[in-house]
């Protein structure tokens, strides 16, 4: 069976985010970019399914600037067989991404789509669910365990009160949570091999989808700063302050 793994190029997890002085957004000039961490988990899960013999082909796809080729090469170094870049320099929002992915799904007909539950830049947590709705597929979001058998996938989901397990008919969409797996690092030989794997370039026009953003970002600001308080000298002083000054116990 075939798995489609959509990935996103985002600011590196370890970079400290700086809001631009004119409040137009976050400063991304000369900042290290990387594959979104939840997307790495999605690639890893697909690779493990292939290693188990459940999956025969992994196709990575990204919608974004030309530079997102780097992240697709990384996905191929980790084990994806080929990839597709839908190139655009415009801002694309989850509904647009989902529409582009729906067009790819129609073309590729994967049995399973595995993607990150959210990107660490916009924190939207929408794309997988939207794709599932547009493609008429069931969804297993926030997955911490994935088990494929007999034309179905069983997904254990991280929900607020604990864990929930659902069974989905294939084809289905799965979005990854942090504890699903620990992604491997790409080895040097695999990085070299990935350079020769096929990377197909497309444009939104090729897919016939409208990616116009529906939401405009009016302003981006720093969050309100919290002032440091005082250091107390003892447990007694702490209890006294909480009782009499803060009045919270």
């Amino acid at each position: 069976m075939k798995v489609l793994v959509p990935i996103k190029r985002v600011i590196d997890y370890n970079v400290k985010v700086r809001v631009k002085a004119d409040n137009s957004g976050v400063d991304l000039a000369n900042v290290k970019m990387a594959m979104n961490p939840f997307c790495e988990i999605a690639v890893e899960e697909a690779v493990r399914l292939k290693e188990k013999g459940v999956v025969s082909e992994i196709v990575a796809v990204s919608i974004g600037p030309k530079a997102a080729q780097e992240q697709l090469r990384t996905a191929m170094a980790l084990g994806a067989d080929r990839s597709i870049l839908v190139e655009t320099d415009e801002e694309v929002q989850p509904l647009g991404i989902a529409k582009a992915l729906k067009a790819i799904v129609d073309d590729e007909k994967p049995d399973l789509v595995i993607l990150g539950k959210q990107a660490i830049d916009d924190d939207n947590n929408q794309t997988g669910q939207m794709l599932a709705a547009l493609a008429g597929m069931p969804q297993g979001t926030f997955a911490s365990e994935v088990d494929v058998a007999d034309g179905k996938v069983k997904v254990t989901r991280e929900i607020d009160g604990g864990l929930q397990t659902v069974e989905l008919k294939l084809p289905a969409v799965v979005t990854t949570d942090l504890r699903l797996n620990e992604p491997r690092y790409a080895s040097l030989p695999n990085i070299m091999k990935a350079k020769k794997k096929p990377l197909d370039n497309k444009t939104p026009a090729d897919l016939g989808v409208d990616l116009t953003p529906r939401v405009t970002i009016e302003k981006v600001e720093n969050p309100p700063e919290r002032q440091a308080g005082i250091i107390v000298g003892s447990v007694d002083e702490l209890v006294e302050k909480l009782k009499n000054e803060a009045k919270v116990i």
Binding site: Q93, P94, L95, A98, D123, N124, N125, Q126, T127, G128, Q129, M130, L131, A132, A133, L134, Q139, T141, F142, R157, E158, I159, D160, R214, V215
Partner: peptide, 23 residues
């Protein structure tokens, strides 16, 4: 914006062909 709301709301938005605004 609980795991229930985050699970279905984007699906609803896509079916209505509108954006979803999160959290």
């Amino acid at each position: 914006a609980t795991t229930t709301g985050k699970n279905f709301a984007p699906r609803t938005a896509a079916l209505l062909d509108v954006a979803q605004i999160s959290e």
